[in-house]
Nucleic acid binder design. Structure first.
Lengths: 305, 305
DNA sequence: TCGGAGCGATAGGTTATAGCTATTACCATT
DNA sequence: AATGGTAATAGCTATAACCTATCGCTCCGA
């Protein structure tokens, strides 16, 4: 049996007349007769009761007709679905993201993505960037959503920057610099301050980057501590143990005793990136990255001080 | 798209190797390649990512694979169903039956039929024989289940006797005949009794037949009443208003004051028949009639006194 | 009672295409 | 550089879907 037989049979069953059905199918009547006979032989069942002046369905034919209709409809439906998936408008998309994005860029990206592509089924997995690399390579997730970049350059991965943010210095409120001005200061202004950084395992790329920035600004920072979550570090800052540097979004975490001052001249920018396998052709991926960039730019204008 | 494409695609998607898939399909590899390419072109979607050393499914292909599997399974399933319907083992079967069968032969027939053909969906409709003829002719029901026969002979209908029963005379308990013997009596013994018959609309065939039987036995019955349900008539008999003649099954309706005596010499037999349109080829019909005859014979041996 | 109209089935030729074989092009591995 | 595996391509063959022409049947109106 072939779908052709189903199409022909449905036409005949609906017209109950071979000639008219054949016309509808742009076919000559004898061809249709032959195909229907062949179908009956193949299925092993008489589907139509026909004599020279009427055609009617047998009970088996009635049931078979329903089956054929459903079959054709199904074939049509899942072909369409496949096309939608190929166009990135439907289908599954697994995304990993680092915890620091969960309250920042990600929700905005998801909101817009869901609006534009409501039929893409998103699977969201919070994990650190190392785990993301593994799962991307193992085809467990389609996309990684990380900060800054990756420790090592892996050629199979395509890293795309989707948003950037300025950096802010977090300084104890009673510190002289905090009093001078709320305006941006150069990184060099922190040259003599003790530095508090977050835990190295949480920020394997960020911390070294900060140190490089300081070196580029002409000083070697005195890192007195390198542990804890960002929020913990801010509490240490409030306690006067030192200063820290964070992406601008953290300045929204209003913390008593901490003053946030943007850094400038040169203005270092923290980047958020997506990571994907180059040969992963899930078309929803491109849409997601596109939306992330779109939202990222907006965010950049809105959030960066 | 044709089912062939689905079959081929499933094989390739399962083997992830054109050569092996082609072997499995008893096909040469280039033919398979061509067909898959054709399928992709037809659906308008790249289903497989293939280079010279590996084949893998695209996201659209994964979804399409599921669709194809379901499609093939469905086609198989409803072909089988059609065959079962054609074999009378499945499908719908509408039956009409006269009220007097509802508590007699019909339940036994249904019991056995359901056991043998559990997948045939029976639709049961109680109605008098005239309504049955109409609905059979109008293809509303497949089978009529009636007593005795039909008033007029309709050539399109095939009437098959499936069971027969002896007749009993119902006589007031204090009547001399009732006292003489419980053994069978000839119909002629009732020649001088007043006859009570059921309503003519309920028994358009039965009543005239009884009268003909009496005439054949050599007397003209004195019908003093012709109305009511059988149970009502039996009450009249109990009251001593006269005698009546009924199929043997009614002797199970034990009624105070009524004595049932079988009729014999000649032994008139009441027949139950099925009626069907000759050109109704619902195959479950033949099975039903067969079972009715089978049960009818049993009933005959068990119930006829 | 006899054409005529309309139906599906049949016969026989044509054509499209699924399938074949042989080969190529490509890549990974040795 | 050679080998062995892959899928794709080229060109031919054979199957079968399709066509036209015709038949045989039944119904229906003249």
């Amino acid at each position: 049996m072939e779908l052709r037989h189903a199409r022909y049979f449905v036409a005949v069953a609906e017209e109950l007349n071979f000639r008219r059905a054949a016309e509808r199918l742009h076919l000559a009547q004898p061809s249709l007769s032959t195909q229907i006979r062949q179908l009956e032989q193949d299925v092993g069942v008489k589907l139509l009761e026909r004599d020279s002046h009427k055609v009617e369905l047998t009970p088996a034919g009635r049931s078979f007709l329903e089956g054929c209709r459903r079959l054709l409809q199904d074939a049509d439906d899942f072909s369409r679905t496949a096309r939608r998936i190929a166009g990135g408008e439907s289908g599954p998309l697994s995304i990993g993201f680092v915890p620091s994005l969960a309250h920042g860029l990600l929700p905005s990206v998801l909101r817009l993505f869901r609006k534009r592509f409501p039929d893409v089924q998103l699977f969201l997995n919070e994990m650190d960037s190392t785990a993301q690399i593994e799962q991307i390579a193992g085809h467990r997730i389609d996309l990684g959503f990380i900060g800054l970049g990756l420790p090592k350059d892996i050629p199979e991965l395509e890293i795309v920057a989707v948003a950037e943010e300025r950096l802010v210095a977090a300084i104890p409120q009673d510190h002289p610099i905090a009093h001078k001005s709320r305006k941006a200061i150069p990184l060099k202004a922190l040259a003599d301050e003790p530095f508090l950084l977050g835990s190295r395992v949480n920020a394997p790329v960020f911390n070294p980057w900060i140190i490089v920035l300081c070196q580029q600004a002409g000083f070697q920072p005195l890192v007195v501590q390198e542990s804890g979550q960002p929020i913990t570090v801010l509490n240490y800052v409030a306690a006067g143990l030192g200063v820290t540097i964070l992406p601008a979004q953290f300045s929204r975490l209003v913390t008593a005793g901490v003053c946030f001052i943007p850094l400038a001249r040169p203005t270092p920018r923290y980047r958020y990136c997506t990571a994907r396998l180059r040969n992963n052709h899930n078309p929803a991926l491109a849409h997601f990255i596109g939306i992330a960039r779109e939202v990222g730019d907006l965010d950049a204008r809105k959030h960066i001080l």
